[in-house]
């Protein structure tokens, strides 16, 4: 499964995020990271099999990382792919907003109280 990652990282990621049940699972892990399957099933209105399947999709998309502690399989929320979405899709818009704020600050601090006059210069 991992070998095809290079072709469709983003596809797997957005597909994994497209299901409300999986998003709810991610919320549960965000509230309390490092849970077993049984712990996750306790608070969710889903069958154990359903949770298992959702976790497999999240793991394939690298949104959930698994660690063994003794005989317990713990599930951790992995935010790195979400950071990549931020870098790819959001940060460029933030940059424009920050630039606009920076320009506003500069024009105000340069002492002009009349925006119309400043905009002509």
């Amino acid at each position: 499964m991992h070998i095809i990652r290079s072709v469709s990282d983003a596809d797997l990621l957005f597909k994994a995020l497209s299901d409300p049940g999986r998003r709810k699972l991610m919320d549960r892990l965000h509230a309390n990271d490092g849970q077993t399957l049984s712990e996750l099933c306790r608070y969710l209105d889903m069958t154990r099999q359903g949770v298992t399947q959702h976790l497999a999709v999240l793991e394939a998309a690298n949104l959930v990382a698994v660690q063994w502690r003794g005989r317990e399989k713990l599930h951790f929320l992995n935010p790195v792919p979400l950071q990549e979405i931020y870098d790819r899709w959001i940060s460029k818009f933030e940059r424009l907003r920050l630039q606009a704020l920076g320009e506003l600050k500069r024009s105000l601090e340069e002492g002009s109280t009349d925006p119309k006059r400043r905009s002509k210069t």
């Binding site: 990282d9 990271d33 490092g34 690298n62 990382a65 951790f76 992995n78 790195v80």
Partner: peptide, 12 residues
């Protein structure tokens, strides 16, 4: 959990 705090981050 159980007196421990941790996170696991993975990237390919």
């Amino acid at each position: 959990a159980n007196g421990r705090s941790s996170f696991v981050y993975v990237t390919f």
